[in-house]
Design a protein around this nucleic acid. Structure first.
Length: 274
DNA sequence: AGTTACACCTGGGTGC
DNA sequence: TGCACCCA
DNA sequence: GTGTAAC
């Protein structure tokens, strides 16, 4: 499940290869992954375009092109965007193939087909659902401890739900929400306004540290995730609670448990996280 | 405002 | 081996 | 992972 660290790793690996390459052909095998515009317009406006830059906002990848249009990709749960030789084996569920002017290809593969690709005029980028309402980038300068604290004070929702809310903070998903709360020793069901200033300070720093460490490890590869060149990340070897129910806590030796919060699994240590 | 249920999909793992 | 179920 | 509808 690509979250901020995975999307950032894809961004970096693609940017290494894609800049200056031109799209010569677009093969679309499954139309539903193209969110906008209609498929013919998508192809017409993208053909002959050259990649100028690869950006990221939250879990969205943003490709700057020669024209005044931008291509935006969200990988959702199982999406992959991989650059490689045209001869590389064709994976099942490859929905879009961008053929490039150096003979290589950029392929979008997604078994569950939740992922989406948009092509929009630059001035309309805010119209993409979820993109304009994103909260601050946790690894960017806009993420302030004072604002974070003030927001937490006036919210009564469970802290894990708040960390997953992209309007509150951009880029955190189920794996890192659990890892961040474990690092901060905070129970996922605590209401946001019940946290002490001390706990909030620790939580703020854990958000930054956990995400940074995961970026350094090039993301977490449990099942589908690979970077823009098809390589797995290594952060799965450093995960402390996610998908570890029934195993011993690496900090206190207690047993990790799983519970449901907002119809999603939450993994935590009942001894360490109060 | 907070919470839950479900929709969108396929595949891997489990237990019988 | 098949099938129902849960999970991601 | 996200959007929508419902209580």
């Amino acid at each position: 499940m690509p979250e901020l660290p995975e999307v950032e790793t894809v961004r970096r690996s693609l940017e290494e290869r894609l800049l200056g390459l031109q799209i010569k052909k677009i093969t679309i095998n499954h139309h539903s992954v193209i969110a906008a515009p209609e498929v013919p317009a998508f192809q017409e406006n993208l053909l002959e375009q050259t990649f100028l830059q690869v950006g990221r906002r939250g879990k969205y990848l943003i490709f700057d092109l020669t024209s005044n249009w931008k291509m935006v990709v969200h990988l959702r749960m199982t999406g992959r965007l991989v650059y490689g030789d045209a001869g590389m084996p064709l994976l099942k569920h490859t929905h879009v193939i961008f053929s490039l002017d150096n003979g290589a290809e950029l392929r979008f593969t997604d078994p569950r087909r939740f992922g989406r690709i948009w092509l929009v005029p630059a001035q309309d980028i805010a119209l993409i659902s979820g993109l304009s309402t994103l909260g601050p980038e946790p690894l960017g300068g806009e993420f302030s401890p004072e604002v974070f604290q003030e927001q937490l004070h006036r919210r009564k929702t469970k802290i894990k739900s708040l960390l997953l809310d992209q309007r509150f903070i951009a880029g955190i998903g189920n794996i890192y929400a659990d890892e961040i709360l474990f690092r901060s020793c905070i129970h996922p069901e605590r209401s946001a306004d019940s946290l002490s200033d001390e706990e909030i300070k620790c939580l703020f720093q854990s958000v930054i540290d956990i995400l940074q460490e995961a970026v350094e490890h090039r993301g977490t590869s449990f099942s589908d995730y690979v970077d823009g060149l098809g390589a797995k990340g290594t952060h799965q070897n450093y995960v402390k609670v996610y998908q570890r129910a029934g195993n011993n806590c690496l900090r206190c030796g207690g047993v990790i448990e799983r519970m449901k919060i907002g119809s999603r699994s939450a993994y935590y240590c009942p001894q360490c996280q109060k």
